[in-house]
Design a protein around this nucleic acid. Structure first.
Length: 476
RNA sequence: GGCCCGUUGGUGAAGCGGCUUAACACACAUGCCUUUCACGCAUGCACUCACGAGUUCGAAUCUCGUACGGGUCACCA
């Protein structure tokens, strides 16, 4: 059997969006499930949108996520080059071949004429399709025009009747009437190919067996198939992925929060957790388990189980998955994703390394992502804490509370050696001397010293806060 | 507007003609655990699968229509 080859083909336009990453994951998974190769190809045919450094970004994201390409611009391979701007002569050669085959033609139409055509279509409320005006030129006319330096593009010549049908592994049989297909541009006037052309040429030349991409390409796939047919090439298997949308059902974009992978990474999300979560966007294994490593996913992954309906990118679920991974982290790994955020937000100069370590540790089970540590621990860095809302209500709910807190303050004061055990003894003594117990004892103290109703173990919290701060807060 | 795709609970999502009295997870509620909250554990939570019709002994599952949502119609990918 021929070796399975998939490709991730991003355009280097900046950030790597979670939607792109998710495509890359699926592409990687299909390849690895079949012991195949995963290829990285850079589609930089739009010179106006090119962003410097974007290729590094793509590589960094892939390597953080464990999606290392078997072939690509940095590591090479026998099908290179893997950057489309370095393959320009190839596209021209194939475009010209297509002209010779009568499946493409030169077009000299100006932008003005095209705009007029569009305006007419618009007022008539019909879809705009290029009218094929330039098909009329003879070979001689074309030679004259081009040697005069007239700008031209090369357009694909579409059949005017019949129906094109293809099978998509996810969506099944898709049929589209040929008369709806536009004579799309293959080669732009700047000599660069369009995506529509370069993509097909490269997929074939690079021996890609499975084309995996977003379902926005579903309706244009027949156009690509026509190119394969014109050259007599074998067509790849198609796997179109359901779109990733935000909670409002709209296509995922900036306003849905941190949807660039690097933003997530910088906020202390773990790549393994993000990959795990993203793999479940529009796919699931038959089991009900949800936590899998990349290797496990590769074993399990079958494109037949990809869903057809849009997948909702849900940060709450991501948080849950990420929290799951955080709970398994070693202390050093945990420090790595939290301490930089603490440093950025608070003055840590007066704190010892031990203290910071203890702080981070008691929050390990409470953390959804690294940066959240800043939100959760502000009670350790604030000069004044405020008691309000439900917490204030609780403090006013029983007249015995202020006496309990006074007793507790005395107990804290009498501690000589500041240890968690001694803090515990102080709490126990307070219970005996004041008669307060359970919630009335613990919650009162918790609120008074932290201002919050939830948090890690109370003795741990008190110990970390320090005797001086505790006395201070109990005195207010 | 034409064409293509989708529509299961508060949310995400299984289900692919009888094994479904519709998984599982998040959220929520209750109980247990912990001398407190949380964590963890247990239990509960869709008399029903957008709506209408049809096929069938039998439909969330197949067909058609309607409604709603999305995608696509660039010298962008």
């Amino acid at each position: 059997m021929e070796k399975v080859r998939t490709r991730f083909a991003p355009s280097p336009t900046g950030m790597m969006h979670v939607g792109n990453l998710r495509s890359a994951i699926f592409e990687y998974l299909v390849a690895k499930h079949n012991n195949g190769d995963f290829i990285l190809r850079i589609e930089d045919t739009d010179q106006t949108r090119k962003v410097e450094g974007a290729i590094d970004f793509i590589y960094d994201t892939c390597s953080l996520c464990g999606l290392s390409p078997d072939e690509g611009p940095r590591n090479g391979g026998e099908y290179g080059p893997y950057i489309q701007s370095e393959r320009l002569p190839l596209y021209k050669e194939y475009a010209l071949k297509l002209v010779e085959l009568g499946k493409a033609y030169y077009c000299f139409c100006s932008e003005e004429r095209l705009n007029e055509l569009r305006a007419v279509a618009d007022t008539n409320k019909i879809p705009f399709l290029y009218d094929g005006f330039c098909k009329k030129y003879t070979k001689e006319e074309i030679i004259t025009k081009t040697s005069n330096g007239e700008a031209y593009v090369i357009r694909q010549m579409m059949p005017k009747d019949g129906i094109s049908t293809f099978i998509d592994i996810v969506y099944g049989e898709i049929s589209i009437e040929n008369k709806l297909l536009e004579d799309q541009i293959l080669l732009k006037s700047d000599g660069y190919p369009t995506y529509n052309f370069a993509n097909v040429i490269d997929d074939h030349l690079m021996a890609i067996t499975h084309v995996i991409r977003g379902n926005e390409y579903l309706s244009s796939t027949p156009k690509y198939n026509l190119i394969y047919d014109a050259f007599g090439w074998e067509k790849p298997a198609y796997i179109h992925l359901p779109m990733v949308v935000g909670a409002d059902g709209q296509k995922l974009s900036k306003r849905h929060g941190a949807s660039s992978f690097m933003d997530l990474y910088n906020d202390g999300y773990l790549p393994a957790a993000v990959v795990n979560y993203l793999a479940f966007l529009g796919w699931n294994p038959e089991t009900t388990d949800e936590i899998f490593s990349l290797e496990e996913l590769a074993k399990l992954f079958t494109p037949e189980r990809i869903s057809r309906s849009p997948a909702v990118y849900d940060v709450k679920k991501l948080n849950w998955v990420n929290a799951h991974y955080i709970k398994k982290l070693t202390i050093d790994e945990l420090l790595a994703i939290t301490v930089p955020h603490l440093q950025a937000a608070y003055d840590l100069n007066s704190k010892t390394g031990e203290w910071i370590k203890e702080l981070v540790m008691i929050y390990q089970n409470h953390l959804s992502y690294g940066k959240e540590i800043v939100l959760l621990t502000d009670l350790f860095f604030k000069e004044h804490i405020e008691i309000s809302g439900e917490a204030l209500e609780f403090m006013n709910s029983d007249s015995s509370i202020s006496n309990t807190l006074n007793v507790f303050k005395d107990e804290i004061n009498s501690i000589n050696s500041w240890t968690i055990d001694n803090v515990n003894i102080a709490i126990n003594n307070t219970k005996e001397k004041s008669g307060a117990k359970g919630k009335l004892l613990y919650m009162s103290i918790r609120i008074k010293v932290s201002g919050q109703m939830h948090g890690p173990e109370l003795p741990d919290t008190i110990h970390l806060l320090g005797k001086e701060v505790i006395i201070n807060r109990l005195s207010k």
